[in-house]
């Protein structure tokens, strides 16, 4: 009777193990994974070069954004903001021009001559992370991707392009007093509006004088 119990237990264990794990060659798996990554890199590059400019063309001027948000936040968010979920964090694609007042290791501060008063904002020049550019573009739908990991790879890819291609030449050239023209993404919290500490993740930077 005891032996029968052991046989049943061993059979159950074997059955579960058989349906729990599988074995493959590690080199084959790695090869397949690198193939997938190449696809996503190509997708991100295509998005950066061919789709993001469509969103950049529709970017709202930062001065207009500040004025409109102050006057009618609900209307402005409805018209210009993009977000994936139902949360309070929303993203805008913005453009503008301002004078450099401070250059730090990880950001450049610009003075913007606003319609109802001047204000300052920060351009991120070192730590570019998160999903602000992807989400501010308003062009991507999460359901179009296989999973959230793949969807997040688009953000990681865009941030990498910004870090490698947009920021280094700008950081090298920019000096205090320079006038900088920019296009980028801004995150705003619908419930806790904070317009005196705007932070732009840039997708285009140009020193005009």
């Amino acid at each position: 009777m005891k032996i029968l119990k052991y046989i049943i237990a061993a059979a159950a264990l074997l059955f579960i193990s058989y349906h729990s794990v599988y074995f493959e060659k590690l080199s084959d798996v790695r090869r397949a994974e690198s193939g997938d990554n190449t696809d996503m890199e190509a997708y991100t590059r295509d998005f950066w070069e061919n789709k993001l400019p469509l969103s950049m063309d529709k970017a709202i001027d930062i001065k207009d954004l500040v004025t409109r948000v102050k006057a009618d936040p609900e209307e402005t968010f409805a018209a210009y903001a993009h977000a994936l979920g139902i949360g309070d964090l929303q993203y805008f694609m913005v453009k503008g021009e301002g004078q450099t007042t401070m250059i730090a290791d990880n950001q450049v501060e610009l003075l913007i001559l606003g319609r109802d008063g001047n204000f300052k904002l920060r351009i991120e020049t070192e730590l570019v992370y998160g999903n602000s550019v992807r989400d501010a573009s308003g062009l991507l739908n999460m359901n179009a991707f296989k999973n959230t990991s793949e969807f997040n790879e688009v953000s990681a890819g865009l941030n990498k392009i910004i870090r490698k291609e947009i920021l280094p030449p700008f950081r090298k050239e920019v000096k205090e007093g320079d006038v900088v023209r920019f296009i980028g993404a801004v995150e705003l919290n619908r419930r806790f509006l904070k317009l005196d500490d705007l932070e732009v993740t840039p997708v285009q930077l140009e020193i005009v004088k």
Binding site: H19, S20, V21, Y22, F23, E24, K25, L26, S27, V29
Partner: peptide, 17 residues
């Protein structure tokens, strides 16, 4: 999963596993 480099073995896990 789990990759064991020296023997070029990949142990994949099903949902149950």
């Amino acid at each position: 999963g789990i990759g064991i480099m020296p023997v070029d073995l990949y142990i994949g896990f099903t949902l149950l596993g």
